[in-house]
Each structure stands twice: as C-alpha cells, then as structure tokens.
C-alpha cells in the first residue's frame, strides 16, 4: 500500500499538484532578519543546522526593521512571516500593541540561562551588537579615538556618515559633546538635551552622508566616499575578514540586543518555537559568534567562547568600558517625536 501511495504521490507531483500533498508533511518556516552579513552568519549557524536536524526547511528573508508589514499581516490575519528579528524598542512597542505572541519560555529554555535584558514578554534575545565608530585606516594616518574626533573636521577633513534617523544619532551627538554614557538618556529626556544634541549635529551637518542599510558603511568606507562612519561592529569585522583595512573604535559604542519574535497568528507557531529554541542553545549561539562578531545572549555560550573571538565582541569587558546601553523603553516613549524632529532637521 505504502509503495502504491508513494507512487501515486509521485505521479501527482509530476503533474504539478504535488504541493498540496507535500504541505501537511512539514511546513516551511519563513525567518526574517536584517540581511547581509547578519543573514549569512544566521544561515551558517542556525538555518542550515536546524534544517539538517529537523527536516524543516527555512526560507530566509530580510528587512530593515520596519513594522508596517508585520502590522498589516497581523491586522489582516494573513501572517506569512513566522520568526522575525527585531530591535528592542520595536519589540516592546509591538508586544504592547499585540503584534507579537507572548512567548512560552517552557518551550525555549531556562530564563536563568540568558542575559537578563534578553528575556522579555514577547521576545528572546539572539545577539548583542553595537553601533561603533569605524574608519578606513588606509585613508587616515592618525586614528580617531572618540566621537569628539568624529566631529573634528579640521583634524579629519572629509565626509563622514551616520545612520539616517534619530535613534543612535542623538546619543552619539551627546557623547561627542562630552555627556557621560550613564547620563545620556537623562539629558535626552529634556527639551534642552534634545536641543543640545541637534546643535551638536548642526556643526557637521554639511559633512554628513547618511546611511540606511547596515551593509552601506563598510562599502562607503572601503570606496573612500567617507573617511569615518558609525556602523554595526559585526559588519566592520566581516569587512576586515574580507581584507579591508577598516578599524573599530570601541570608545563610546552604543550596544543593544536583537530579539527573535513570533508575529501573532502565524500558522507555524510550533515550528517557530522549535527554531527559536534551537537558535538559543549554547552550541548554536557560539557558532553564530564565530561567524560574525556579535555577542551571544546565552550565558553558557559566552563562557564557552574562544578568547580571541570574545575580545572582538561588544560584550567584551574591555569594549564595554565606556559603552552606552541602548534604552529601548526611552525610544518607545520618545521615538516618534524625536524622529519627527530629526526628519524636520535633516530636510532643511
């Protein structure tokens, strides 16, 4: 019987209606992340081993963190993304607004095994990344050492690049203006503090070329379009591996975790949990940090890291010395007003 059925199945597949029969066996899982080098590392560390272990095929997709598509999917109850990587502010906001499933941690692992900031109602951290100052060491003979140097157009003439948006840009402006990392969000919560950040940005407005996608800074630095840029540290580390002479200044880095979430109403929630559980294991998290210089959130993975790799991660104690932890809750509160003001400022 079995062989006959297989035979028939083969036949139907041949005539082109096989999909309907193949679907119930194992659903494909659509996993959306920030693309580029991040996605390449995720494919190697998570997607391929996961498919090998479970037989569930993963369809990798990418986006730039915009929540509109997810909202549209959830609102119309037609969710085609099963697992999504999001930044902290979007996670907190989306969780409150009902875009994401509250997670059942029994299906993922012991909460105690993770960094405290990685465990939230609707998300589990996947890696720690940092926005750092990067420069092209072939073009600059004296290396910059801080964001204050980034603002010094006399000592370092040429275009520089920042992410187009208020988030991180305003923090960086205040750090450059001498605000201590611990004070940044306190200052930014006041009108005077915001004015101060924009006044600082005014000083170099004409010298800034804005970037939007994480893959842009290494390209712009390598091509010589800009001499310095804010960038995601992992992208720069990957460019270094490819032989580019780009360097990282850890002083004044702004770090944050990205999280896995499950959009509310996905039909593949069970498989999504399986994937998230798999991607939160010490072994796979360690493999990810070997692929790209982003830190694991599983404490056991942090302990098991090779010392050479660990030294290049945002979580290395030396790199954390003068670093700023991104405050997701602050951006949930003030994000819209500050992004609006940033747009108004940038467009003039």
């Amino acid at each position: 019987m079995a062989t006959l059925r297989q035979h028939l199945l083969g036949m139907t597949a041949l005539v082109g209606t096989g999909l309907a029969f193949a679907a119930p066996a194992q659903a494909d899982l659509t996993v959306i992340s920030f693309g580029g080098a991040v996605q390449q590392a995720q494919i190697k560390a998570y997607y391929e081993p996961f498919t090998a272990a479970t037989g569930i095929k993963i369809i990798p997709g990418e986006y730039n963190g915009e929540q509109a598509k997810i909202k549209a999917m959830v609102d119309t109850k037609n969710v085609t993304w099963d697992v999504v990587e999001v930044e902290t502010a979007e996670l907190l906001r989306g969780c409150e607004e009902g875009l994401y499933e509250p997670l059942d941690f029994a299906k993922i692992g012991d909460k105690k095994d993770f960094l405290a900031s990685a465990v939230t109602e609707c998300g589990i951290g996947t890696f720690v990344w940092a926005t750092i100052l990067a420069y092209n060491a072939d073009k600059l003979t004296t290396p910059p050492t801080s964001w204050a140097d980034f603002w010094d157009v006399k000592k370092f003439p040429g275009k520089r690049s920042l992410r187009k948006g208020a988030k991180f840009t305003l923090e960086i402006a205040l750090l450059a203006d001498g605000v201590k990392p611990a004070e940044v969000y306190k200052v930014l919560a006041t009108k005077e503090g915001v004015d101060r950040a924009f006044a600082k940005l005014d000083q170099i407005k004409g010298d800034i070329q804005w970037w939007q996608a994480g893959a842009q800074p290494p390209q712009m630095l390598a091509s010589g379009d800009v001499i310095m840029s804010s960038a995601y540290n992992g992208r720069i580390a990957t460019a270094q591996k490819e032989g580019r002479n780009l360097q990282i200044v850890w002083n004044g880095s702004v770090y944050d975790a990205d999280h896995w979430t499950i959009p509310k109403g996905t039909p593949n929630a069970a498989e999504a949990y399986k994937f998230i559980q798999f991607a939160s294991l010490p072994k796979t998290q360690g493999a990810y940090s070997q692929q790209i210089a982003y830190g694991p959130v599983n404490l056991k993975a942090i302990d098991g890291l090779d010392a050479k790799i660990a030294a290049n991660l945002p979580t290395a104690p030396k790199n954390l010395e003068n670093a700023l932890a991104n405050n997701g809750q602050f951006w949930v509160e003030y994000g819209e007003e500050l992004e609006q003001r940033f747009n108004a400022w940038a467009a003039k």
């Binding site: 819209e336 992004e339 747009n343 940038a346 467009a347």
Partner: peptide
C-alpha cells in the same frame, strides 16, 4: 538625493513603513 531633496511621497512612505502612523 540627500534629505534636502526628499519630496512629499518620501514622508508618506516614512509614516507607512517606519512608524506605522
């Protein structure tokens, strides 16, 4: 363009995609 060249549609897209407003 730079931010100084963005036209009305850019801000429509910004509100639809980025802030879901």
């Amino acid at each position: 363009g730079s931010p100084r060249e963005q036209m009305a549609s850019y801000f429509v897209a910004f509100y639809v995609n980025e802030t879901t407003n």
